[in-house]
């Protein structure tokens, strides 16, 4: 890619990443949440891949690492559900609910959002990588 694209990417990729994290963390207060934020984070990585080529990105973040994060996200979500199960019902809230409209509120929902965000980011980016590398990874779902 040309110099302009690379420069702009260098400046904006971080912003996109931070915006995605922001969406995930405020998922229980504003529209958005784990899925939307995860997609935005994955987009920032895809952006980097498109501008700098897949080798530059894969040096920093290998395919195996993405897989590990994907499984960790899914297991974390399942663990939150099981903790809820220990508190009475599967998926039940096990943290204090807190005041509405605060960042630290809504019990276990922000944690679930973070887990979903990790899972979606890793899943989407690994789909992208699999298609780019022409080596199909059938574990994506």
């Amino acid at each position: 890619m040309s110099l302009i694209v690379k420069t702009v990417t260098r400046l904006t990729a971080w912003l996109i990443l931070l915006y995605g994290i922001n969406i995930i963390l405020h998922g229980h207060l504003t529209p958005g949440g784990g899925f939307a934020g995860g997609v935005i984070i994955a987009l920032s990585f895809i952006h980097l891949t498109l501008a700098y080529g897949k080798d530059a990105v894969l040096r920093q973040l290998s395919k195996e690492a993405v897989h590990v994060w994907e499984s960790v996200g899914a297991l974390a979500f399942l663990a939150i559900a099981l903790f809820g199960g220990a508190a009475g019902y599967f998926f039940a809230n096990f943290l204090p609910a807190g005041e509405p409209f605060n960042l630290f509120s809504a019990g276990s929902i922000p944690l679930s959002n973070i887990a979903i965000g990790i899972k979606v980011w890793a899943g989407l980016f690994s789909i992208f990588l699999a298609l780019v590398l022409l080596r199909i990874n059938r574990g994506d779902k």
Partner: peptide
């Protein structure tokens, strides 16, 4: 549902 899902993701991990 939880048991096979846990098995599946532990496997891929």
């Amino acid at each position: 549902v939880a048991v096979p899902l846990a098995g599946a993701f532990l496997n891929s991990l």
